[in-house]
Amino acid sequence: MGFRAAVITFPGSNCDRDMAVALEAVSGQPAIRVWHGDADLPDRLDLIALPGGFSYGDYLRSGAMAAMSPIMRAVVAAAERGVPVLGVCNGFQVLTEARLLPGALMRNAGQRFICRTVKLTVENTDSLFTAGFTAGEALHIPVAHHDGNYFADSETLDRLEAEGRIAFRYAEPVNGSARDIAGVLSENGRVLGMMPHPERAIEPAAVTALGGADGRRLFENILSALASA
């Protein structure tokens, strides 16, 4: 049976199509597009992807309104059943606002919108998203955000470190994030939130103008983890 991934679109999402294209490029299966106002998700999902963008115009706080939308109740319930969830950029903000991941994404320390390819260090290689990477490996993946400054209290940060739940760090400071955190996993390792955009880095590495191909490997990791599950 084919890989079934759903991409949620909120009003103001703008990376939903890129996410769907990346998922289809890697899996050969078209992603199912789901609207934020839907109350239910398709059944038998292998992955739920929350894309980047500016859902609800970032009103109140980035991701805050989207976290309250009808489909997020279904996403939270699915995550609790163990369905893998990937939130990228605004999707990461939505996951923290929905309390599926700890912490919060605040305004970048330098106040500026940052849009460039950054170097990441792989910290976790145990999750379905990261099992194909090598610990300490460098990845190059683009970021494009204004609110990517990860914050959590020091107890939470210590716990994340101790439990191996920091998926990626920035190799050098980018946006003021606590402990240079770029991506965080849930306690069961099946929910990943990350500010960098893997779906923008799926073309062969030679085409560096299009972000390289390190992001593609994240999607390939998901597929191999599911295939061997």
Partner: peptide, 9 residues
């Protein structure tokens, strides 16, 4: 607690 403030920050 649910919406107006994010009590994490």
């Amino acid at each position: 607690e649910k919406l107006l403030a994010n009590t994490v920050i």
